[in-house]
Amino acid sequence: MSRKKSQKSKGSSSPASCGVPATKENGKVGTDCHSNGMVMSGRPSLSNSGEFYDIAFKVMLVGDSGVGKTCLLVRFKDGAFLAGSFISTVGIDFRIWDTAGQERFRSVTHAYYRDAHALLLLYDVTNKTSFDNIQAWLTEIHEYAHKDVVIMLLGNKVDSTHERAVKMEDGERLAKEYGVPFMETSAKSGLNVELAFMAIAKELKHRSMKLPNEPKFKLHDYVKKEVKGSGCCKS
């Protein structure tokens, strides 16, 4: 009678394993990600019910407590947003690589940065502090993560009715400064959620395949081309 609902996880720093099951999962595998038997489902489930993984990329979601990491992950994984159904992440939830975002937990979880292939770094556009802390997160990442780690900056909660505290241009400027791709997302509406994970997946796939005849995948360009503004998707 464990009360835990399996899809529920805790909202804090969330490493998502960009798991790569060889079988498709939930029928929602990005077709552009298949190649040589290696299917890159962006689905962040690690190994549900004995699925076979040829290769798994470890993608972690990091950022301040409450910025919506778990919600983003669940939106991507299950295509759902259940308001008020999340509980704060404590420690690490390995099914979806969810870890706590509160500052002190970093010293427990940064060991996992070491073998992360990609990090989605989140802030909450309605919470200035979470944006101000991005630099501290980047410092932490540079200290503990692999030097080739793929980083993407995400400004989440653009759907929020709360007043916006961080302008999109601020996010863009910071991202440019650190040379990382950027987009604004909403776990609630789903805006750019799929794109964020799939862009990371594509980048990782291209890196690992090193196909000589294919043009180099350009993550920045891809993101710029595909990203949607928050204006057009408001429901």
Partner: peptide, 10 residues
């Protein structure tokens, strides 16, 4: 406060 709504939503 950040965690209030995230404590035992069930």
């Amino acid at each position: 406060v950040t965690d209030l709504n995230r404590t035992f939503p069930d």
